[in-house]
Computed example of a mutant assay.
Amino acid sequence: MAQDANEPPRVRGPPPGATEPPEHVKKPQVYEIFHGSSREGQEGRPTSAGQPDDVTKSPSSAQPTLKEGLQSIKADDFLNVHRIPCARQGFLTGIGTGAVVGMGRYVFGARIPKAANWAFGAFLLGSVIQFEVCQAQRYQERAAMARVVEVIDRKQTEKKAKAEEAARLRREAAEKKAAEEAAAKKSWYRFW
């Protein structure tokens, strides 16, 4: 992938300010959300591009294939695994589980390849289970935080309404007192 010094630089797209969009913008990417196994009643529904599903998809891409799935994996996905929430905890639990199960199988008489297979299986199973447990806990925390925020907002609006009502009552009391003082200052007699 390295470029020779004699070779002119490759252009990825038009220069800035060009009127024609780059190649990757010309054809919009359509994302599909899977809600279940059946697609009844969803045909012809407009997508994000504003075109019906049957117009944007070719018949061959109705079901994704393993080859398409593998082609969608990028090297950047593996470099950013540490940024995925719960991935670290899942991997550490999987490593520990795999080591314990593999050692246990070896100590209790299994040969090394068989113990390694058990260790790898335990690693996968432990990692997936811990990842899913962590994700469920995060979901519950988010739901609890949303409830807390809702309660705090409601209490703040109640407190603000009470403060406004108290300020209105104080203002009315001050006006009433000022009116009484003004009436008391009026003399009950007149010289002219």
Rank of each mutant, 00 (worst) to 15 (best):
residue 84 I to D: 08
residue 49 A to T: 15
residue 162 K to D: 13
residue 175 E to V: 07
residue 141 E to L: 07
residue 174 A to W: 10
residue 142 R to I: 00
residue 139 Y to K: 09
residue 66 L to Y: 10
residue 48 S to H: 10
residue 190 R to K: 09
residue 112 I to C: 03
residue 45 R to H: 08
residue 89 Q to R: 07
residue 88 R to P: 04
residue 36 G to M: 00
residue 182 A to L: 06
residue 163 A to I: 05
residue 142 R to G: 01
residue 43 E to P: 02
residue 122 A to L: 03
residue 127 S to I: 07
residue 45 R to D: 06
residue 160 K to C: 04
residue 170 R to S: 03
residue 29 Q to Y: 10
residue 118 W to S: 13
residue 186 K to S: 00
residue 183 A to W: 04
residue 82 H to K: 00
residue 22 P to D: 08
residue 66 L to V: 12
residue 33 I to C: 03
residue 192 W to P: 09
residue 9 P to R: 11
residue 44 G to Y: 00
residue 149 V to L: 14
residue 48 S to G: 13
residue 191 F to C: 05
residue 190 R to N: 08
residue 140 Q to I: 07
residue 166 A to V: 06
residue 78 F to Q: 02
residue 122 A to G: 07
residue 127 S to E: 14
residue 87 A to Q: 05
residue 2 A to V: 12
residue 174 A to Y: 09
residue 39 R to D: 15
residue 99 A to W: 07
residue 104 G to H: 06
residue 47 T to N: 02
residue 77 D to V: 03
residue 120 F to L: 10
residue 45 R to E: 10
residue 62 A to W: 10
residue 26 K to N: 00
residue 50 G to P: 05
residue 14 P to Y: 11
residue 157 T to W: 12
residue 108 F to W: 08
residue 92 L to D: 02
residue 13 G to Y: 03
residue 107 V to F: 11
residue 153 D to N: 12
residue 7 E to W: 01
residue 80 N to W: 01
residue 114 K to C: 11
residue 125 L to Y: 08
residue 66 L to T: 10
residue 92 L to C: 01
residue 119 A to L: 02
residue 172 E to I: 04
residue 103 M to V: 05
residue 55 V to E: 15
residue 192 W to Y: 11
residue 45 R to A: 10
residue 132 E to K: 11
residue 50 G to H: 07
residue 38 S to N: 14
residue 5 A to K: 13
residue 126 G to F: 00
residue 146 A to R: 09
residue 10 R to Q: 14
residue 113 P to W: 13
residue 83 R to C: 06
residue 137 Q to E: 15
